[in-house]
Each structure stands twice: as structure tokens, then as C-alpha cells.
């Protein structure tokens, strides 16, 4: 079943075209990886999907509902979408537990006790039960990012958007976050993730989309797009990445 369908997305910043008629379809329980050079519009696309940025053209359908219609309340749409950012963006004045329960209590109107119990259960699953009462600045980057993922999951989202969630992490901390994403895939979570980790994209994604010039240049199963790309631009991009790794 199709969960997300975008048609002709266009987004410009001060005359600079970032998204130029982009189409993207995501089926339920599927993981789509967005790859592409910095500035190719991966982050912008994710922000547009979460209605954090107004569109300049195009439509976004979530569960068959046109959420790009201005009459739709964006707050209600965002409740169904979880988003995780490159820089974690935990709330520094709230404890780990309060970070996670804020939306369930304030947005979904759950009782504090119920939300806290659910948060502790989620924290336990990601191995951070002992950190519930700590403040974010006492946590490592990898721990903060796992809390950020749990915070998004606490809303029981239909779709998760992950924006280069390992890019700000030290190499030895990347693994713990990727393991968590792997678990989410195993549970059937639908995800769109922007990433620079080609090996991870190959492993976890059902489909890889290569973005360039504001639209999807090439998409398909990871083995084909990453292993045997047909578009010259995709080849060039992958070639550059391999070269960089060799240095």
C-alpha cells in the first residue's frame, strides 16, 4: 500500500532552485534511502515532507490525504510523521524522559504516568533505561541521537524521516545508531532516510534514490543503483565517494 506519494515538488530559496519537480513514492513498511551530494536537496525534501517548509509547487499525499492542501492543519500531519535531525536537537532544559514524553502528553493528551511508562519501555529497548533522568548534555552523541529517535517513536508515527542521523557522530558511535535503525526496519517501520553511509544504504534500504539537480535522477534496488548505475551522474557521484574513501 502506498503511504507517501509526492508529485512535482518544487522548492526555491531566494531564486535558487533546490527541488525541481521531484516525484517520490514510498510504500508502507519500505525503507527508502536518499543519496546525493551536499546541497542536492535531501534535507530540504525531508523538511518539505514534514511540512516544515512551505512548497513552491507540487503535492504531498500521506495515507491518500493531500497534506499540501493549505486547509490541512500541519500540526495534525506532523503527529503522524517522526523526524530525526543530524544535530539531534534534543531540548537541553528537559531530562531525557521529559524530552520523550513532551509530545505524548501535550499533543496526544496522554497521562503523564502512561507516557512515562511508555518512554521507559522504549529507552529500555535501546539500552538507555539508566539515562532516563539525565539531561541531554550528559549523554554522548550516539546516546543523544538514540534518544532523539525514541522521542520521535513515542508519537507512534506512520512514517519516520531521518536526516543524516549519523553525520555528526564520531565513527565509533555510528554503529549504535545504525543498529537501532536496523531494528526499526525489522519491525516494519516505513522510513525515508538521507544518508552518506553507502554501505548502510545498501544493507537497510529497499530502494535507493539518487538526487541531483533537484529531482530523483535514478532509483531502484540498492544493488542496482549502487552497484551498477545506469545514469552517468550517479556513476560520477559514486566514483567520487570511492575516491574519497581511498584517501
Amino acid at each position: 500500500m502506498t503511504l507517501l506519494r509526492c508529485r512535482g515538488l518544487r522548492k526555491t530559496y531566494a531564486g535558487h532552485v533546490v527541488l525541481d519537480g521531484l516525484d517520490l513514492t514510498v510504500d508502507e513498511h519500505r525503507v527508502v534511502a536518499l543519496i546525493g551530494a551536499s546541497g542536492s536537496g535531501k534535507s530540504t525534501l525531508l523538511r518539505c515532507l514534514n511540512l516544515l517548509e512551505p512548497l513552491d509547487d507540487g503535492t504531498i499525499e500521506l495515507d491518500g490525504q493531500d497534506v499540501s492542501d493549505p486547509r490541512v492543519d500541519p500540526d495534525r500531519v506532523r503527529r503522524r510523521i517522526g523526524m530525526v535531525f543530524q544535530s539531534y536537537n534534543l531540548f537541553p532544559h528537559l531530562s531525557v524522559l521529559d524530552n520523550i514524553t513532551l509530545a505524548p502528553v501535550r499533543v496526544h493528551g496522554r497521562s503523564r504516568a502512561e507516557a512515562a511508562a511508555q518512554a521507559r519501555e522504549l529507552l529500555d529497548r535501546v539500552g538507555l533505561a539508566a539515562k532516563a533522568d539525565d539531561y541531554p548534555d550528559r549523554l554522548s552523541g550516539g546516546q543523544q541521537q538514540r534518544v532523539a529517535i525514541v522521542r520521535a517513536l513515542a508519537n507512534s508515527p506512520r512514517l519516520m524521516l531521518l536526516d543524516e542521523v549519523t553525520s555528526a557522530l564520531d565513527p565509533e558511535l555510528v554503529g549504535e545508531v545504525l543498529t537501532l535503525i536496523r531494528d526499526l526496519k525489522a519491525e516494519g517501520m516505513t522510513m525515508v532516510l538521507a544518508t552518506h553511509e553507502m554501505a548502510f544504504a545498501r544493507e537497510v534500504a529497499d530502494e535507493v534514490c539518487f538526487l541531483d539537480g533537484g529531482w530523483v535522477v535514478e532509483s531502484g534496488p540498492p544493488e542496482r543503483v549502487l552497484g551498477d548505475p545506469t545514469e552517468p551522474r550517479t556513476r560520477q557521484f559514486l566514483h567520487r565517494i570511492i575516491e574519497a574513501r581511498r584517501l
Binding site: L52, M83, N155
Partner: peptide, 25 residues
């Protein structure tokens, strides 16, 4: 602004974002 983006992405309204995320900080 990333704090606002994080709060809004959780479904908090503008007022809730002000009250629970921006003002305390």
C-alpha cells in the same frame, strides 16, 4: 531555530512550542 523545528516536528503547535520549548530556555 533547530529547537523550533524539532518541537514542531513532534506535532506541537506554535503556542505549545513557545510555552514548553522556547520560553524555558
Amino acid at each position: 531555530p533547530s529547537q523550533l523545528a524539532a518541537a514542531r516536528s513532534l506535532g506541537l503547535t506554535y503556542r505549545q512550542t513557545m510555552r514548553h520549548v522556547v520560553l524555558p530556555q
